[in-house]
Design a protein around this nucleic acid. Structure first.
Lengths: 240, 240
DNA sequence: TAGTGGTCTAGACCACCGC
DNA sequence: CGGTGGTCTAGACCACTAG
């Protein structure tokens, strides 16, 4: 085996073990679906403790490259699928990371009863008011994204008094209203009149749209709809 | 503290430790930026081994909730940002997971020199030929996504003989041409004539587009452009 | 029921880097 | 320099489940 000579001379770090296992998977020494030797045997082969092999295999399992079951052992995944991690964007940081100057403007800010669809998505009772805020984010003075959201005042009461002029709702909520989980949907939408004007687009332009609902336990915190300016590309890396 | 009473009675699993640490972070017992006690102290508090605390903290660090430095210790992240994992889709599985019947049709398949932009993105030498394949994926007979891609025959020579009629290029490549890394870009594009006809859309419709380049070492494997049918939503979950 | 992964322990050494 | 996280070890017990 290729990678064992450098391992034989001393204790193998779990990364070295992982690298060798990864090599065997990628080079089809162990093809998809194949059974991998158990931890004890691998530990013996690599002359290390079982815990070290376990660490390496666990890492590969988290990446979806192998599947593990108690009695059945470890197998190479049928589909060694890559996985990308998509971070929840704080628009200011995203813009500044590109070397641009960030600025935001609150367009509207009002208390109202959200429409039925929003109420359903946020699991709100009928008749309760929520805070609707619309914010435009600019990079170097050019429109970058339009952030339209509803905030559940029951989950984040302090938002009622937040002016959002210095700290944007996007950032304020991330910092002050921690969520326990959420879900995101990406889609392409045609620019309607309001968004087109704000984003310097033409009506009907294809705009990348990110909709996100975050929850704190069983209470929704905010439903955000972020519409990016025309041509925006959301990039993510793909790991083994 | 809420979670400690049940921990005091016996050895704490690392998940229980993580849950308690997570609680303190989410409830601002340890606000963003705050220093967390070191592993030894926490192990003493939870009456467990340091390795158990380490496991819990490592998990939180991987999720981006805390940052760890050798001498400086562990701090709550300024932005306890959630992160979503976006799996590389095998369209057939994605469709079947929705309970629909999958079918695909190869529209075109030809060997040609890719255009300059593609050549650059795939780091190909000038003049070499690659395989261009265009495939339409259908769910219950309705257009689902259009897959247009270039395949680097240098990295996946077997693709030259693959008919792609039974196994789609999408699936064939995932299974037979493992990649080491890649990058993905999501954007919204206006449907041009060809895509509109195939996807049962109107010219100019906003379409969610996923572009992906995968690499095997320093050689590109494939550049794929997947255009989804109108209204498609790409969903991802958001974890703490 | 036996074999596998999952976890915990107590101890040890090391790499890093703020003080 | 010394404290911190990062890792490895040898051993142990447990949880799960395939055969």
């Amino acid at each position: 085996m290729t990678g064992s000579s450098d391992l034989a001379e001393g204790p193998a770090s779990w990364r070295a073990v992982r690298a060798e296992l990864l090599r065997r998977i990628q080079e089809r020494v162990w093809p998809p679906g194949a059974q991998i030797p158990n931890e004890v045997d691998l530990a013996e082969e690599f002359a290390c403790a079982r815990a070290t092999v376990s660490r390496a295999l666990r890492d590969l399992a988290e990446r979806g490259l192998v599947t593990r079951k108690r009695r059945a052992g470890t197998r190479v995944a049928d589909n060694p699928a890559g996985h990308a991690t998509l971070r929840i964007p704080i628009l200011r940081e995203e813009i500044e990371a590109r070397g641009s100057a960030h600025r935001h403007a609150v367009l509207t800010r009002r208390f109202a009863q959200p429409p039925a669809a929003t109420r359903a998505a946020m699991n709100l009772a009928e008749g309760v008011e929520a805070l609707a805020v619309s914010t435009l984010h600019l990079a170097d003075g050019r429109p970058y994204a339009l952030d339209e959201r509803w905030i559940n005042l029951d989950a984040a009461p302090a938002a009622a008094d937040a002016p959002f002029d210095v700290v944007s709702p996007n950032e304020w909520l991330v910092r002050n209203a921690a969520f326990t989980h959420g879900d995101v949907a990406l889609s392409a939408t045609a620019a309607e009149a309001g968004a087109a004007e704000r984003l310097n687009a033409t009506i009907g332009d294809a705009l990348l749209t990110l909709e996100r609902v975050t929850w704190r336990g069983d209470r929704s915190v905010t439903l955000a709809r972020i519409v990016f300016a025309p041509g925006h590309r959301l990039r993510v890396d793909l790991s083994p």
